[in-house]
């Protein structure tokens, strides 16, 4: 009993828990930065570590050492809470997603709903944090984040729950296991849903063409304009974890998640799938100009939501 508890704590803290995810987050940021740089014919980070692999970590450490400023007009509670939640919410979400084997660290029936809840909370935290920072730019950024949520939330949820229908379960671990066992990856059985989910994740992660809440040339840094020092460090780390979360969701819900192929352990297969999704996101992020907020809303309601619904209807007809 004691050893079981100890093992669980170790799993939670080290592998595949906290430490592993943080390292993975730093590594994914590096992969994304290098990849985008290559697409744009640039070098990307080069100095820290071999090929600049330690650059995200170095950025984090540097930000920790910077002066911590709370603006006079900011609401102190939310200003402190937002960076913390920005990191902890995606971390919590990653605990319920399977990475090393069939079962996630914490798995229960209905954790898919919990995941959806976490995503919405995250955006609301962004809105509150931005709105209560007391700067015009962060206020506009926060409002834009909330407005954008209105556009992408419905298709996002539809695409998230799509894979649950054939697997007839609301547990992410069960869905990915079902897909791996029946060789029925969501990518092949419901390609439209996959596309919709990728688009919505781009919007959720505030990447181009949906980086409206932090549009650099329009509103400086948007909702996180007032964060400095360790708060900004946490926000940025939270963004990296979110990036891992997004690619993990795609890998787990639409690519069958961790599965044993021949003698290759599931974790390797999972990482391969996850980084494939990461590169897809990175590739898409370089291809577009930024939309305007009204264009996002109308585009989402006109094209993306109907697409998600059609996918749902097709699913219902087949299963």
């Amino acid at each position: 009993m004691v050893s079981e508890a100890l093992s669980f704590i170790l799993q939670l803290l080290i592998f595949p828990g906290f430490l592993f995810i943080i390292c993975l987050a730093f590594f994914s940021e590096w992969v994304l930065r290098k990849f985008v740089a290559r697409i744009q014919n640039r070098m990307g980070p080069t100095y820290t570590g071999s090929g600049g692999i330690l650059q995200p970590f170095a950025d984090f450490i540097k930000l920790l050492g910077k002066e911590d400023i709370v603006p006079a007009f900011a609401e102190r509670t939310y200003f402190t809470l937002t960076p913390l939640l920005c990191l902890t919410l995606p971390l919590t979400a990653l605990f319920i997603l399977p990475m090393t084997g069939h079962r996630a660290l914490i798995s229960f029936e209905g954790d898919l709903i919990f995941l959806a809840f976490i995503f919405t909370t995250l955006t609301i935290m962004v809105f509150l944090g931005g709105f209560l920072s007391g700067s015009v730019f962060s206020m506009v950024g926060g409002v834009r984040a909330a407005t954008q949520l209105l556009g992408y939330e419905i298709p996002f949820l539809l695409a998230l729950f799509g894979p649950a229908i054939p697997a007839s379960s609301l547990s992410i671990s069960k869905i990915s296991t079902w897909q791996a066992q029946n060789n029925a990856w969501g990518l092949w059985t419901q390609p439209i849903g996959f596309g919709v989910l990728v688009i919505c994740l781009l919007a959720e992660l505030e990447l181009l063409p949906f980086d409206i809440p932090e549009a650099e040339t329009e509103i400086v840094a948007g909702w996180n304009v007032e964060f400095t020092g360790r708060r900004l460090a946490l926000v940025r780390l939270g963004r990296d974890v979110e990036l891992v979360l997004a690619s993990t969701i795609l890998a787990d819900l639409y690519l069958g998640g961790p599965q044993q192929v021949w003698i290759i352990p599931p974790i390797i297969i999972f990482l391969a799938k996850m980084f494939a999704c990461l590169l897809l996101i990175g590739y898409l992020k370089t291809l577009f100009a930024r939309f305007r907020i009204d264009q996002v809303l109308s585009g989402m309601w006109k094209y993306v939501i109907p697409a998600a619904m059609i996918q749902f209807i097709i699913l219902k007809l087949i299963w």
Binding site: A37, R38, N41, M43, T286
Partner: peptide
């Protein structure tokens, strides 16, 4: 899309 794909395999100009 094509231009971006082509550039992945090119050496950086920097």
């Amino acid at each position: 899309a094509r231009e971006a794909l082509r550039n992945i395999f090119k050496k950086p100009v920097t």
